[in-house]
Design a binder for these strands. Structure first.
Lengths: 140, 140
DNA sequence: CTATAACCCAGCGGAATACTGGGAAATACA
DNA sequence: TGTATTTCCCAGTATTCCGCTGGGTTATAG
């Protein structure tokens, strides 16, 4: 039950961009050197983040990446889903109502997987990059 | 962010035992045939469940496994942790306070991983086998 | 023109996951 | 007493996925 490095590196990198927000682009090299990530691996993550519309890029010398909107407007869920796809604790939990296990015993556990998924989503969808910058926890 | 088959098969198998509670042992064969699991794989899971004290076994003909206590007294968290170890979303989230990342930027994300972990544990620790049998959701 | 960056794509090594197989020891029942 | 049935135990294996490497191309600043 672990997040892959994609999610972890990705969130970390995005926090980095957030801390620089409004101060021009940061290059992949800067980020990966700071955190000891592999350059080309980071590149792939940023490619996905860009496709998801979370960052903008600037090519060429002095180029790099920038957040595409305010840190308070990007939440961790956006980042993780861009990099890892939707949260899916067990296969069946994301299927539609007609999925075969609906009639079998499997269904006794299905609600459980859905609840776990929902609780994860609930955390990551209510935490913005700005919250992380300010080291804020979710008030509960 | 997926549970392994260990966790999924394991919970399912335990629900099966729960449905039979008080009616003698069920063999691995019965369970694995019903759900199309591999016999020997199931065997390994039950070995772990037994070590964790969640089931008792009865060897020989007409033997099998039984819950070691009432279904309402075994929760999903017990089962998943017995089979997969403790929930650990990111490495650092389960380290102690002195872990090195405490001073680095990593810490801005650490609370996040901990919150995700806690929210998962919160779900699985408040759902008993009896709840599953009765298809009860967590009231929220 | 040159250095520096993003971009793009293909492949690969290693670890973990999911599973197989064989042979023991215990128990029920004939 | 013997046989079928079951747990028990351990070792190996197939496969998948994760994390990463490497090659080259295109854009931009100075």
């Amino acid at each position: 039950m672990r997040l892959s490095t994609k999610g972890r590196y990705g969130v970390l990198a995005m926090v980095e961009l957030a801390l620089h927000y409004g101060q021009g682009p940061i290059s992949i090299k800067e980020i990966s050197e700071k955190h000891n990530f592999s350059d080309s691996y980071m590149e792939q993550l940023f490619s996905a983040l860009k496709n998801a519309g979370l960052v903008r890029s600037q090519r060429g010398a002095h180029g790099g990446y920038l957040l595409s909107r305010d840190p308070s407007d990007i939440n961790v869920g956006d980042i993780i889903r861009a990099l890892e796809g939707p949260i899916e604790v067990a296969e069946c939990a994301n299927k539609n109502e007609n999925y075969e296990c609906i009639k079998s015993l499997d269904c006794l556990t299905r609600g459980l997987w859905e609840d776990i998924r929902d609780s994860i989503n609930n955390v990551i969808d209510h935490r913005s990059l700005r919250d992380l910058m300010e080291n804020k926890s979710l008030e509960r």
